[in-house]
């Protein structure tokens, strides 16, 4: 079965006017005629410079945006016509760990679990299991999120996503800005959930090694269009010029991924 089926999806945004009486600005295309399929249990990487449309694509898949045109299905359910069904199957981790910062990890996770109809007891033991696996000290569970490092917050964000056992996990730069140890922990955990649960994963990243290590296929997005979609090895061979996946990215987009990551961090 296909985890994602995306046909000619187009999305544009109109920039805000400078003032109430200012001129209406023309719409800017964020995604242009994106078409791809993703089989169940695959990890699909999406690479692209800042503003290339990665997060827009993730938001469309997780029903937080409506496409202007085209068709997007998650496990056969249309994201526009059956958003509630899609929402039962997905979860997302974004680059910014959005939480109620004054609340503790446990309070935030209780809230998230409640929204998905999970019982508090079951959710807490599952969250504890995930956070222990990710190496978050137990003493931190009851501390306000604002007292945690970015890496620790990101681990709580991953626990929030996995609490609901999503069939499709959307990871939007989950390791950006993390220290090498935290990054390794998260990457190992992604491998584990793929292995143990067969979850399908979409992974947006600027880290070429991460894409190489975790992804079955990689799509390269530039100016809202897919300009390449293949296995990391094949992309490196075809476009890398001896520079591996990073060389391929540079050749295809004309951008340096390290600069992109520094800008995001």
């Amino acid at each position: 079965m296909l985890a994602i089926e995306c046909v000619d999806v187009f999305k544009s945004f109109r920039p805000e006017r400078e003032s109430l009486l200012g001129r209406k600005k023309p719409k800017v295309a964020a995604l242009q005629d994106i078409s791809f399929t993703m089989p169940e249990s695959e990890c699909l990487g999406i690479l692209g410079p800042n503003g290339s449309g990665k997060s827009t694509l993730i938001r469309l898949i997780c029903t937080l945006l409506l496409p202007d045109r085209g068709e997007l299905k998650v496990f056969g359910r249309d994201v526009v016509k059956a958003p509630q069904e899609v929402r039962r199957l997905i979860h997302r981790v974004s680059v910014e760990a959005s939480f109620f910062k004054k609340l503790s990890a446990q309070e935030n996770l209780d809230y998230a679990a409640g929204l998905y109809g999970l019982s508090r007891g079951a959710a807490r033991s599952r969250a504890q299991e995930i956070l222990e696996r990710l190496g978050l000290p137990r003493a931190k569970y009851r501390a306000p999120l604002e007292e945690m490092s970015r890496g620790q917050q990101q681990k709580v964000a991953i626990a929030r996503a996995l609490l609901t056992s999503p069939t499709l996990l959307l990871l939007d730069e989950p390791t950006t800005g993390l220290d090498p140890r935290s990054r390794r922990d998260v990457q190992q955990f992604i491998e584990e959930i793929r292995h143990d649960y067969g979850a399908s994963i979409v992974l947006c990243t600027h880290d070429m090694q991460e894409a190489q290590r975790l992804c079955d296929r990689v799509a390269v997005l530039r100016d809202g269009r897919f300009i390449a979609l293949d296995t990391p090895t094949e992309l490196a061979v075809r476009h890398g010029g001896g520079g591996g996946l990073e060389g391929a990215f540079l050749a295809l987009t004309g951008e340096d991924p390290h600069e992109e990551e520094e800008m995001n961090a």
Binding site: Q84, E85, H91, R92, F99, G117
Partner: peptide, 18 residues
């Protein structure tokens, strides 16, 4: 408003709750 400030509204509205 609080959800908008914290950015959690996307997570609340992405949940399968009516």
């Amino acid at each position: 408003m609080w959800e908008r400030w914290e950015g959690t509204i996307e997570y609340s509205f992405m949940a399968p709750v009516r």
